[in-house]
Amino acid sequence: MVNGHLAIDLVELMAATPWGSVASVDVDGVDEAEFVQRWAAASGNYVLMVHADRVELLRGIPPDPLEALAPERRPGHRLWVYTNFNCNLACDYCCVESSPRADPRAFGVAEFRDLVAEAAACGVRELFLTGGEPFMLVDLDERIRVGVAAMPTTVLTNAMLWRGERLRLLERLPRDGLTLQISVDSPDPGLHDLHRGSGSFERALAGIEVALALGFRVRIAATLGDDVGDGEARLRSWFDRLGLAEDCLVVRRVARQGAANSGLVMSRSSLLPEICVTADGLWWHPVAAIDPAMRVSASWRPLAERIGEVSREYRGYRLAGEIAASSFPCA
């Protein structure tokens, strides 16, 4: 039985806490933490964070930060899957340290089927397959077909492997509901080859031509580092000449993850989550899929519960952040 003093302390504490402010209650064990959560839900207060020894409560029920997000930005709208971690390249900024020598950690077809079925059932609307280089897998087409049958699917690729058997694999893929997102970091070999390897720019361009000729929807994705200079503007003019739709260019910054030793610093509290599944578990975001601090759980099952956990955690960070910001002292 939970100590009666805890309930009394709670009533007193929250009565004295101004609306919209945070209070912290010390708890001794799981029973007390659960009691505080039940009490908060029933008394019109909000649980911000549950720690091992205390629960942070917000006085009152705040507007849900998730509601403020566009539907396609909410956790659980998109699902990322790392099909494998090995790659024909070894880019110096690769956020998951992929390379030809990396352990493939391939995501098996049977498990992929289960995952996509659960994802569709719990409201996931867009699927993204990434790696490593997904086309390293000679049975990638099976996964792509499973994905496309369930929802719009994008495959991230460096577009360098489409020859021989892998070209035939590409040719067999469905066109409807599939986007190939191809990495190009600069409009010339300069920065692209510097970070991604000599000759990789020319082969990526050739890959883009192959994909377009075969009737695939192509999106270009650039990853830019500190050395970009005027590269972004030049890249955009190059992109304009390709004649693709405006929304077919994605530009992002290098993240300080994996092989990158500079770039944007990522943490769960500062990064809008995009649920990501790998052979090693479920992660906060695909840009940080080998960072232990960003792993949410060792298993993605049951997916709906995992999405709920991530949503709750994100909500807690947002609310805590907004409260901290709203009380930022000017002097």
Binding site: M1, V2, N3, G4, A7, I8, V11, A15, F35, R38, W39, A41, A42, S43
Partner: peptide, 14 residues
């Protein structure tokens, strides 16, 4: 009512 909001009388010992 505040004390028993969680509808778990035994918790409070009262």
């Amino acid at each position: 009512h505040g004390l028993t909001a969680a509808e778990d009388d035994s918790v409070t010992g009262l």
